[in-house]
Amino acid sequence: MKYSNPQIPEGINTSDSHPLKEFVLLAGGALLLLVVLAWGFGEAGARLARFLPFESEAGLVPEGVLQSDAGPELQRYIDELATRVSAELALPPGMQVNVHVSGGDTFNAFATLGGNVLLFRGLLEALPNENALAMLMAHEIAHVVHRDPIVGIGRGAAIQIVAGLVFGDPDLAVLGQAGIYTQLHFNRDMERDADAAALRAVNGLYGHVSGAADLFKVIQSERREQGGGEPPAIFSSHPLDQQRLQAITDTVREHGWRADGPITALPAAYAEWLRDAARRHDKPAD
């Protein structure tokens, strides 16, 4: 009996397909799959959310999000402006908007469930005139009218469920981020719609849109001051500042609205009211 081990040729138990080629195919397919699923489920979630009656939204607002630090004068002024802006935006029956002012120095404002809008002192202080403030409030109230807060939550939940189900493997978690970027895409659409509605409301309120662009200029200069720079459009929740300014110019030209007109100043005591709100924020009333 002869015993021997001849050399066996390579590549019988392994495939010689190029790993990079396989990677491109698989990763591309997975991304496409996720974006399509996120799109489909996101739309379904958004549609479902719209069925929820507006009245039941209020119960979903988390405790402690809505602090109100405004003194009576500031609150009266804000409420009065909100009423005028709301009239321009044609709130559907049964919908009510509550605008709150936080004394915090955060440079932000947002609309949340139940028609609640929160404006932060940090942003309010930077506004140069009432027109810009009206633009800001109109933008946030437009989110409420479009029901963006609940739609965003519905869409976000649907996308997370899909991403979790299909990309639950921790090795693939990084792909799940594509779901977030799909969500951001929808977010930018919502912002654009809110900007357009807000501009229409400002035009209706003052008869011209002068000062509306100041809101975005203020945001832009704050961003420059922070030195952060804008993230690339695909990673951003809002359209780029420059695009928003350009959209104003385009819309005004398209509708033949007046771009110039008398600027309405903020009340003389506005700055003092905000300082008062900041004090209330730092020392909450017992």
Partner: peptide, 12 residues
């Protein structure tokens, strides 16, 4: 890289 590739392969 290969582990990620294998995880992707798991999807399809």
């Amino acid at each position: 890289f290969k582990r990620f590739l294998a995880a992707l392969r798991n999807l399809f």
